[in-house]
C-alpha cells in the first residue's frame, strides 16, 4: 500500500525531517509509527497524505508516485485516505452529523445514502445518539470518535492517524485503538503514529520506529531493494 524508496525531506532552511527512508506497509496491515517528537513521524504522514512532497526519493501510494502527482489529481487520491488528527479538526459551526457526512457530500452520494452511511459510521464509534449534538458539547474522547467516524464514513482503503490518543487518558486511548483494530479486522490498511509505547506493546502490532529522520526499527524488514 505505502512504499518509500530512499525518501528524503528537507525543509527550506536546511532541516532534514526524513533522511533516506525506505519502508513498505503492505495492504491490509496495521502498523504503528513511533519515535520521539521531531523524529519525522508527522512528515512521513504528510507525504503520504499529499501535504508535502519528498525532496528526494519516491513515495508510492497504491502504485501512484506521490512526488510527481499533478495538483489537480490530489483531491481524488485523498479520497482513498481517512485522516484522524490529534486535534480531530472538527468544524464547530455544524452538528456531528454534518461533520461526519462531509466526505460523502464531496463524493456526491445521494441524500438518503448519505444519511444511511453517516448513521452507520456514527453507530460504529458509539455516537449514534449524538448525531444532532454540536461538537463543542462533546467530551474530548467523543470528539475524537466523531473524527474517526468522519475518516471512515466513505470506506477509505487507508486510515492514517497522527497521535490520535495524544490528548486522551489511558482508558479512552484503549477504546480509540480498539476502533482501529476493528477497522483493520475488516481489511482496512491502518497506520497510526503514536508515542504511547506501553499501549503499542500491549496491542502487539508491527512497529516502525523513526529517530532523527531515519528508520531505526521496522517489523516489516523494510524494502527488499532498500
Amino acid at each position: 500500500m505505502i512504499q518509500f524508496h530512499h525518501v528524503t525531506k528537507r525543509y527550506p532552511g536546511g532541516f532534514e525531517a526524513l533522511s533516506n527512508v525506505s519502508l513498505h506497509l503492505p495492504k491490509g496491515e496495521m502498523a504503528f509509527l513511533t519515535g520521539h517528537s521531531g523524529a519525522g513521524k508527522s512528515t512521513l504522514l504528510k507525504i503520504v497524505s499529499l501535504i508535502e512532497k519528498p525532496t528526494r526519493g519516491q513515495a508510492i501510494l497504491n502504485r501512484i508516485n506521490l512526488g510527481t502527482l499533478p495538483r489537480k489529481r490530489v483531491p481524488y487520491i485523498r479520497r482513498h485516505i481517512g485522516f484522524i488528527f490529534q486535534d480531530h479538526q472538527l468544524l464547530f459551526d455544524r452538528p456531528v452529523f454534518d461533520n461526519v457526512a462531509m466526505p460523502l457530500i464531496i463524493l456526491g452520494y445521494p441524500r438518503n445514502e448519505i444519511a444511511r452511511r453517516t448513521r452507520a459510521a456514527l453507530d460504529k464509534v458509539g455516537l449514534l445518539s449524538k448525531e444532532k449534538a454540536m461538537p463543542i458539547t462533546l467530551s474530548g474522547g467523543e470528539q475524537q470518535r466523531v473524527g474517526i467516524a468522519r475518516a471512515v464514513v466513505h470506506k477509505p482503503m487507508l486510515l492514517l492517524a497522527d497521535e490520535p490518543t495524544g490528548n486522551l487518558d489511558p482508558v479512552l486511548s484503549r477504546e480509540i485503538m480498539q476502533i482501529f483494530l476493528d477497522f483493520h479486522q475488516v481489511g482496512v490498511t491502518v497506520l497510526v503514529a503514536s508515542h504511547d509505547l506501553g499501549l503499542i506493546e500491549e496491542l502487539g502490532k508491527p512497529v516502525i520506529t523513526l529517530n532523527q529522520g531515519k528508520v531505526i526499527h521496522d517489523d516489516f524488514g523494510g524494502l527488499d531493494d532498500g
Binding site: 497524505s49 501535504i51 483531491p75 485523498r78 479538526q89 468544524l91 462531509m102 464531496i106
Partner: peptide, 10 residues
C-alpha cells in the same frame, strides 16, 4: 483546510 484534506476539489 479540512475539506481539502478529505478530498474536496477546488
Amino acid at each position: 483546510v479540512v475539506t481539502k484534506l478529505i478530498g474536496a476539489t477546488d
